[in-house]
């Protein structure tokens, strides 16, 4: 079956993997965002904790989780491989190069933006995912693990909020380019629909990232002290 490995190690094959996983990860963002809106509910975290309990224990979700992990792994690995190859394609750099005159900076900085997002993810995963799944959070009133309080206390620290907001800005630019880029790579291009894809991509990036960024900001600025 050498054709499979040949296909997916070719430049376009790798791009296709990046595109498919990227768009898949976009769908994850939507689910994640909608679920996390429970944070805004003024019920002391009960709903959010029910939700997080469900996400942590439901067998379907636990299975899909592995797919998500694979999505990240492939997206990162293939992007990294392509970035290395692309860097190697020009070993002598221009003395004078002015790419800002022909393209937006974020399109040229996908690897950098991706790396920032990856670093954020590591912090994010350790703080919330790891501690929720493998840590020993106190139970809340419904006897669910009280992830909400952890979120609350995290988002009361200014540097943590800053990290999150910065990461969302990076994610936003990553998505602005990545969303339409995914369609282009998969050849889903048409004179009628491509302009629409561009607009949806912009809207998607801004809405999703603003939504995520609103959470730490909300807690930091607007959420009063927790009443225990």
């Amino acid at each position: 079956m050498s054709w499979i490995s040949n296909t997916f190690s070719s430049s376009i094959g790798r791009k296709v993997i990046v595109a498919i996983t990227g768009l898949f990860l976009c769908s994850f963002l939507v689910v994640h965002l909608i679920g996390n809106f429970q944070l805004f509910k003024d019920d002391g975290g009960a709903a959010f904790n029910i939700y997080s309990h469900f996400m942590g224990t439901n067998p379907v979700i636990r299975t899909v989780e592995w797919g998500l992990l694979l999505g990240f792994v492939f997206h990162i690995y293939e992007s990294y491989t392509l970035a290395v190859r692309n860097r190697a394609a020009r070993s002598v750099a221009y003395v004078d190069s002015r790419p800002s005159q022909n393209s937006p900076w974020y399109s040229r900085s996908m690897a950098l933006l991706g790396t920032i997002i990856l670093l954020f993810l590591l912090v994010h995963m350790y703080n919330f995912f790891y501690r929720a799944r493998f840590g020993d959070l106190d139970p809340d009133i419904n006897n669910n693990a009280d992830l909400y309080t952890l979120v609350y206390s995290s988002f009361k620290q200014w540097w943590y909020v800053l990290l999150y907001v910065a990461a969302q800005v990076a994610l936003c630019y990553h998505l602005i380019h990545g969303f339409r880029s995914g369609f282009q790579t998969l050849g889903l291009n048409h004179r009628k629909y491509t302009p629409l894809v561009r607009i949806i991509g912009y809207a998607f990036a801004i809405i999703v990232c603003a939504g995520f960024a609103a959470m730490p900001l909300y807690f930091f600025f607007f959420k009063p002290e927790l009443a225990h």
């Binding site: 392509l82 190697a88 394609a89 393209s103 399109s107 996908m110 380019h177 880029s181």
Partner: peptide, 11 residues
């Protein structure tokens, strides 16, 4: 030939 891969920048 050793060309890089497109990342849809549009340059």
């Amino acid at each position: 030939e050793g060309f890089g891969a497109c990342t849809n920048i549009g340059q």
